[in-house]
Simulated scan of single mutants.
Amino acid sequence: MDLPLPSSDAQAHSEKLTRAIQQQIAAAGGWLSFAGFMEALLYAPGLGYYTAGAHKFGAAGDFITAPGMTGLFGQALARQVAQIMAQSAPVVLEVGAGTGRLAADLLLELECLEALPASYCILDLSADLRQRQQATLAAEAPHLLERVRWLDALPEDFSGVVVANELLDAMPADLVAWRENGIFARGVALAANGEFVWEERPATGELLAAAREIGEQCQLPPGFESEISLACRAWAAEWGHRLQRGALLLIDYGFPRREFYHQQRARGTLMCHYRHFAHPDPFYLPGLQDVTVHVDFTAIIAAAHGNGLELLGYTSQGQFLLNCGILDRLAALPAATPDYIRAASAVNKLLMPHEMGELFKVIAIGRGLDEHSPEPLCGFVSGDQSRRL
């Protein structure tokens, strides 16, 4: 691959993580599930992509998320957040808050809407990102910083709005292969020289049951390879025990099941991001690149529904943002100024089907919202695609 070379310090960091994973594989008997490998790549203490201090977001990082493109994303999302808080409780919990950009935009817009939460909670595993979030909020919304608090774990019970933008795609996933002679988990072993190599073993337990169900539903032929994220399912199901009243707003790239496991994706959706280059090799520079898989939204709602939560809406990001008035927010900017031109370009990327508008989806899952309210959730009033799940 013709990718940018890391600095000597970054290379040394990657080699340190590589040695740690090699030791982990050896201790596990010579084989590690891909979910275990992906978890180590991203979250190994002090070494993983999200737990070390490497710059990840923006032009100098490996990718740009929607909040980093324009503040209008958070301003539009704030309308939906305010509506759900009005029907549940004035509390927001953002899981995986990145640089804190979305938190700042949401808080400032909720202030304009006279709908500030009593508490804005952030749950993030990275100490480095917590520091960046604190710095962003101190710079952009210092008068609202006292409303923000950082959590170390999910609350035992919660009422309000849970926001997660590009969280699910970074949860560990197993790689699965449907073969002529059965269903196999694709894991990682070590070659004689210590390099990572693929090795398949028969799938067992919960993974095998999930793969059988998917294979039957989608009529997968032998040779089909894809991903199953048991971690995403478990996370969604857990909210059935913790969410008392309110909703989860989950924004990520993915598909309903029958589109996820479609013949055109017969090699899955695994993708790595390094310095704004996308490629499929998860063995490249461990710890220095993001490793992601798309989201099976059917699995998300099935897990949540099985624990008492209900589907409140599902649509494309583009349609959701239009429903939440992002074009009105754009129109409020002074026309023909540099700020307007930059914002218009970003909004175009967020909305257009060939950009992020169709690939990214928004799903709302909840419990106990005001049953007497005549208004549906504003982000899903038009173009709801729940039937596709």
Rank of each mutant, 00 (worst) to 15 (best):
E39S: 14
D2Y: 02
S126P: 00
E259F: 05
L250G: 03
D328T: 15
E238A: 15
A247K: 10
T18R: 15
L125M: 06
Q289P: 05
T292D: 02
R179E: 11
R186Q: 15
N323Q: 08
G254R: 00
E216Y: 06
G366A: 07
E114T: 11
S386V: 06
V176N: 00
H13I: 07
F158S: 07
M356F: 00
Y253S: 07
R147A: 07
A35H: 01
M85V: 15
C121M: 07
H273I: 10
S119R: 14
L113G: 07
F255V: 07
L249W: 05
E355Y: 01
P117Y: 06
E109K: 04
I25C: 03
C232D: 09
W150G: 10
E146A: 13
V163Y: 01
A278D: 13
A135D: 04
A82I: 13
S316N: 07
A44W: 07
I64G: 08
I301T: 10
D252Q: 04
A170L: 06
Y261M: 06
E375N: 12
P202Y: 13
G61C: 06
L47Q: 12
C378M: 10
K349R: 12
G308T: 10
G268A: 11
A27D: 09
I301S: 10
F37D: 08
G357C: 00
A60L: 12
G194F: 10
G29Q: 09
I326M: 04
L144H: 03
A336G: 07
Q83L: 14
F184Y: 15
S33N: 03
A332R: 06
W198L: 10
F57Y: 15
E355S: 12
R367D: 06
A185T: 11
A115G: 08
A135W: 02
Q385V: 04
A60K: 14
L270E: 00
R132E: 05
V92H: 04
L208W: 09
H354A: 14
D174G: 06
L113D: 05
G98H: 10
A236D: 11
V188I: 13
I341P: 00
A138S: 05
D339E: 15
E310I: 13
A28I: 07
C218T: 11
L144A: 09
P282N: 05
G46P: 00
S229K: 03
L144S: 02
L190Q: 10
G71T: 08
C232I: 12
Y340M: 00
L250C: 11
H13L: 14
E156N: 03
E227Y: 10
L175W: 00
A332T: 12
T65Y: 01
Y253K: 13
